[in-house]
């Protein structure tokens, strides 16, 4: 369908590069995909419902928060609101990546935004910052293996959840922060990286202790972003448009 629209460079190498960018994410997210499925069934979901949640929401942290609240028996609309709060950062991802995929046809953009999860965003920004064009072939080659594995893991985890002998010994509960730290470090060449990270870290911890989860994500991020926006503009980054 998209043979005509993949014009820049060699599409084959774009596919290859996309697959390569996605592979670490497939490996790193596998424990969480499985864990999500297992926890979902533990919270009264059927394996199909776990699969459906991974397939339609496709956002690990928000899925975990949703499960957590479901177990806590709070009002359904509040669970939806919390899922939205955790995923609200995607508004910012969308605005940033949207600038880089303006050359895609609208339908491809509509499809692409569905797959805009944290690592997909991070890799797109890293690639865009290098001055490389984000092609649909590259983007989907990265996105699809991650997505397919993610939804398969939810189903497998839901079906065979009790087979994980000791999640704590395997460190499953703390792999996510390590992974996110790696992504943070990847952006250390950006202007004002250190003040932004320090501000967001402090603000998110304060929000976590006062307002509570999941709002610490939105509040902490806003603090760092506002700081960057308020900084002197003398070091103007190159305008991509």
């Amino acid at each position: 369908m998209s043979a005509g629209s993949i014009s820049e460079g060699a599409p084959g190498s774009d596919v290859w590069r996309g697959l390569k960018a996605g592979l670490p994410v497939v490996v790193a997210s596998a424990p969480f995909g499985l864990l999500f499925g297992a926890l979902a069934v533990d919270n009264g979901f059927t394996p199909f419902e776990a699969f459906l949640m991974s397939a339609s929401i496709y956002g690990g942290a928000s899925q975990m928060v949703g499960l957590d609240l479901f177990g806590a028996k709070i009002a359904p609309w509040l669970i939806v609101l919390s899922i939205f709060a955790v995923n609200f950062r995607h508004v910012l991802y969308s605005g940033a990546v949207g600038r880089r995929i303006r050359h895609w046809p609208p339908l491809q953009q509509a499809v692409g935004f569905f797959f805009l999860v944290d690592p997909q965003y991070a890799e797109s920004e890293v690639k865009g910052q290098r001055g490389e064009k984000i092609t649909f072939a590259w983007y989907m080659s990265m996105a699809l293996p991650i997505y397919v594995c993610w939804i398969a893991e939810a189903w497998i985890g839901g079906t065979f959840g009790n087979l994980i002998p000791d999640p704590h010994a395997l460190g499953i509960d703390f792999l996510l922060p390590i992974y996110f730290l790696g992504l943070v470090m990847d952006f250390r060449d950006r202007p004002f990286w250190l003040p932004v990270v320090a501000t967001s870290a402090i603000a998110s911890v304060i929000a976590y202790k006062t307002v509570g989860s999941p709002w610490h994500v939105t509040i902490g991020a806003a603090a760092g972003i506002l700081l960057a926006a308020a900084m002197p503009l003398d070091r103007k980054p190159d305008d991509p448009s």
């Binding site: 996510l176 952006f187 967001s200 610490h216 972003i225 503009l233």
Partner: peptide, 23 residues
Amino acid sequence: PRVEAGLNAVPAAVLTTLVAPAA
């Protein structure tokens, strides 16, 4: 330019909030 500067700070800012409370 200030929106641009803000957008450039998004990834580090957001991802930090997923690390700091856990740390």
